[in-house]
Design a protein around this nucleic acid. Structure first.
Lengths: 128, 128, 128, 128
DNA sequence: GTGGTCTAGACCACA
DNA sequence: GTGGTCTAGACCACT
């Protein structure tokens, strides 16, 4: 799978899965990971679409959803920017981590395994 | 969300998500959890459909996917049965657990957190 | 898969495939292979059904189809017998072999492989 | 039996056999035979259905099974494409050929004929 | 009675 | 426009 870099962002798209969701997630994770400075200007919808060779509507949809979560801000005539509110970023980072953990634990419980077993699985696995 | 019991199985359907997938998963987990004896006859397609108030085709699709994974066996004119092969069941159980762990770790890494942090999250969380 | 012997015949049933067809084929092949003497009496419908733990209707259907091919003969009040006509048996044996070869060659051609390649495949394979 | 061509594909349907299986097989063989370039877009579900005068659901089922084998890739909103992975195609071609040979040999053995006889049958037959 | 295939047609998600 | 899910209901194959 090809990696495309644009500004501080990098994208890897799997064409068989919803594109707008991948774009959205990869921006979300880039910011949460701290790779992108707060307040940074995002590439324009048209520019990103061109680079990723996807439809501008798809990029727009991704931006809209991020805007709704206040992770990015659209300023008319200026472009789209990462929020400069550190709290929001931290909040999102925590939520994503918590959600991932919670769904792991849920799956384990559905298999009749307890939290202890879950921990062992994480410890013993080779996650390179 | 209403729980429906039928034979050794219980089902909870969320009408906003693909029904056949939920049926499929819930059978898969029931067997993996060891709640259902190997070789057991599943409810007939029509019977389960009626109980869950969904279309028989939807149930059939769930059964067919499980059949392809060899977790169940369908015998025309007789019905559908859980495999009596313990190995297959164990294999599936391991795979489900491993997949859950792997996707948790992947998400953590994408947030810039390491396996150690992942473990702490599991330890400290309140997963009741 | 369990093998069941009854008289000169032996059966192996896979419950997930049409039973009447398996019974039919296995009788057909037993005779073609020359394992069963011409004129031999077949087990009664009821007896065979009992031994194979399947429905008598299923055995009956197999017998009826074999009767139509004149491989067996039903004599009222006496039972069912393998034909004593060697020609019919030879004919069926040849047909079965020819059919198998023809469908193999057809598949090969559909893959864009010629008869020569087909022969090589047979020669080189490990068919133990 | 009427042959219907559409794009690089051609279809012949026998209405007495499962349609989705025939569609599936004919696509599979077209690709294995190398008649269709890797990465090619398949006709859309609706388009193929219309041309073959069958129901879109029937076409979809064929596509879904091929997708599971990774011979094709479906991209929501974009269409369905032949895989661009040559390895998968070669693998499938080999498997199909091997399976055909294996089932031929099995049939011969069940008739009490050996591999040598099988080879002779292939050599002597008139397979035009 | 069991499962399997097919149709017609609705409604949704994605690009 | 694309594919994906679901329904209702017909008809068939097998036990």
């Amino acid at each position: 799978m090809e990696t495309i870099r644009i500004g501080d962002f990098s994208f890897q798209l799997d064409l068989t899965k919803p594109l707008y969701e991948q774009v959205l997630q990869q921006i979300r994770y880039s910011v949460a990971r701290g790779e992108v400075a707060l307040g940074t200007k995002l590439p324009s919808v048209r520019e990103l679409a061109q680079n990723l060779k996807i439809n501008p509507n798809t990029v727009m949809r991704a931006y809209q959803e991020l805007d709704r979560d206040h992770l990015i801000e659209t300023r008319r005539g200026q472009g789209t920017f990462i929020t400069d509110n550190l709290k929001i970023v931290e909040q999102i980072r925590q939520n994503l981590a918590y959600e991932a953990a919670r769904s792991f634990i849920t799956a384990m419980k559905e298999l009749g395994m307890d939290v202890h077993t879950a921990k062992s699985l994480i410890e013993e696995g080779d996650w390179t």
